[in-house]
């Protein structure tokens, strides 16, 4: 056969092989932005962060939650909260979980949160659920569960007019003793305020509260042990009602009035009459001021602890008439 014919067939063969239709590409430029961190912050509810311990502290069993705040444009697909060997998983940026301190021994743990997020901007990986924005944060968490008791604390007003609470403690605990923790909680409307005092001396078994000015509240005393694994135990609690002053009113000459009062606790008193302060930091229980022209006026006595003025106040209000003899 003619050589040219052979060449023709060889050429045809190569043409056949090379002439395949080339497919196009639907390339969508979504503009990937490099992201170092997608997690802007995390908020835990149910327990609080104690800056002095640089850790979250859990004292009681209860429902807790973790809410994550992500960089704009990202959407949390799921998150996993881990505490020690426990693990809770949820969809979205919030995870509720139950902390049962009866099942978790006291001690330090790593609390971590791992979030799986996507940009939700229509990428292929995002649509098939394989977008890989994963970030993990961890914090220190301490379980400080305490054993409560039905014991009552004793209370008295000492010679200096201070509130003094006392308790009983088993002598056998002395060697394991770390400190006492004295908590006083007041309720003002819906607001709970607690101040905490720690005392490292085993003796005496009493505490003089120089901050107390007669407000309604509850004292609780706990004994903490040297070993974190030992649960602190309650030494008792005490509910105090609000102290009421006994006020006497004496009308003087030239429309002046003298107020005198007795109060269980040593206090500094601000006296307010018809909205104006007529005396400040009165400690001797007597004040004299001129009456205003109205028939009646409102007097408010604001009791504060002496030497801790302004720390807390107990307000006692009553209506004062002008001289009833007139």
């Amino acid at each position: 056969m003619n050589k040219s014919v052979v060449y023709l067939f060889v050429s045809v063969f190569f043409l056949f092989a090379s002439c395949e239709y080339r497919l196009g590409e639907n390339w969508v430029d979504l503009g990937k932005h490099p992201v170092d961190s997608i997690l802007m912050g995390a908020q835990f509810n149910g327990f609080a962060y104690h800056p002095d311990e640089k850790a979250y502290i859990v004292e009681n069993s209860g429902v807790a939650s973790c809410e994550l705040y992500l960089l704009a444009g990202f959407e949390a697909e799921r998150m996993i909260v881990r505490l020690g060997e426990m693990e809770w998983e949820s969809e979205g940026a919030r995870c509720d979980f139950m902390l049962d301190v009866d099942r978790i021994p006291n001690g330090s743990y790593e609390l971590s949160c791992e979030v799986f997020a996507r940009m939700n901007d229509g990428t292929v990986a995002g649509q098939v659920g394989a977008e890989q924005y994963v970030e993990k944060r961890s914090w220190s968490l301490k379980i400080h569960a305490r054993t409560e008791s039905d014991l009552s604390l004793r209370h008295r007003v000492n010679e200096e007019g201070r509130a003094e609470i006392s308790w009983e403690v088993d002598e056998s605990l002395r060697d394991r003793f770390s400190h006492y923790r004295i908590e006083f909680t007041t309720v003002d409307g819906n607001t709970h305020a607690t101040y905490v005092v720690q005392r490292a001396d085993f003796d005496p078994c009493s505490y003089v509260d120089t901050h107390y000015a007669g407000e309604k509240g509850t004292y609780k005393v706990y004994l903490y042990f040297k070993s974190d694994a030992d649960r602190p135990c309650s030494l008792g609690s005490l509910d105090l009602e609000r102290a009421e002053p006994q006020v006497q009113v004496t009308y003087g000459k030239e429309d002046r009035v003298c107020l005198s009062w007795t109060y269980p606790y040593r206090s500094a008193v601000d006296v307010v009459y018809n909205g104006g302060v007529v005396a400040e930091k009165v400690t001797d229980g007597t004040v004299e001021f001129p009456l205003a022209g109205q028939e009646t006026g409102v007097v408010e006595l604001r009791f504060s602890p002496v030497d801790n003025w302004g720390y807390n106040t107990v307000n006692y209000t009553f209506t004062l008439e002008n001289d009833p003899k007139k």
């Binding site: 639907n26 390339w27 979504l30 292929v124 995002g126 649509q127 098939v128 394989a130 977008e131």
Partner: peptide
Amino acid sequence: ITDYSGSC
């Protein structure tokens, strides 16, 4: 579709 994350 094809984008930076993959293709389908």
